[in-house]
Design a protein around this nucleic acid. Structure first.
Length: 193
DNA sequence: CCACCGATTGCT
DNA sequence: GCAATCGGTGGT
């Protein structure tokens, strides 16, 4: 997981496969104020035309444009009037696909995360997609960032064995509710509720 | 142009 | 169980 080219290949796959493979890897964000990082413990896959729950289901729009671009870029969307959620794009250009990062275990920058207002237990600072957006200070300015270059990126981390992976239905959606596209590290206290 | 509603969270 | 809070989306 070092060269931009190898990273690009890693991301440019079926988002369902990518969502599983992202577990255990490390998401980092090098901000001017310091390093933020977390171990990925919960993800969800969203595909395109075949997935009614995906923002890309009805085709390209201004909001979902990066989902149709090259893999390995941040798709950040604003929802419920207050939350910013982070995805990493998948698939080849022209084909929509993304993985929603739903929960991380904090590894670095806990002070900075707390400074943004969450005073709960450390293990719960990043235990939900909206909480990741808040703790990392994400906004629409981050939409489209290249994970293979910029301050936002992925480090190898440690592999998660199959017996530790819990596969289930996606959370908070009203369509395509039966697809087993959610992946979580069973033993982690940081998985969303 | 307008009305609806969401890939959420936290409090009652 | 439900309010907060607002821009994207789709229909008129």
């Amino acid at each position: 997981m070092t060269s931009p080219r190898l990273l690009r290949e890693f991301f440019a796959r079926d988002p369902v496969v990518l969502a599983r493979d992202l577990l255990g890897r490390v998401l980092f964000y090098k901000t001017p104020e310091g390093l933020l990082a977390g171990r990925i413990v919960e993800t969800e896959a969203y595909t395109g035309a075949a997935d009614p729950a995906s923002h890309a289901f009805r085709g390209p729009t201004a909001r979902n444009a990066v989902m149709f671009g090259p893999a390995g870029h941040a798709y950040v969307y604003f929802t419920y009037g207050m939350h910013y959620c982070l995805n990493v794009t998948a698939e080849a250009p022209g084909t929509a696909g993304a993985v929603l990062l739903r929960a991380l275990e904090p590894l670095a920058g806990v002070e900075m995360m707390r400074a943004r207002g969450d005073h709960g237990p450390e293990s719960r600072l990043l235990s939900g997609p909206g909480k990741i957006g808040r703790a990392f200070g994400l906004s629409l300015d981050d939409n489209g960032r290249d994970f293979t270059r910029g301050p936002l990126g992925l480090a190898a981390g440690t592999p998660v064995p199959t017996r530790e992976v819990a596969i289930s239905r996606r959370i908070g959606i009203s369509r395509a509710v039966d697809l087993p596209y959610r992946f979580a590290v069973a033993s982690s206290r940081s998985v969303s509720k």
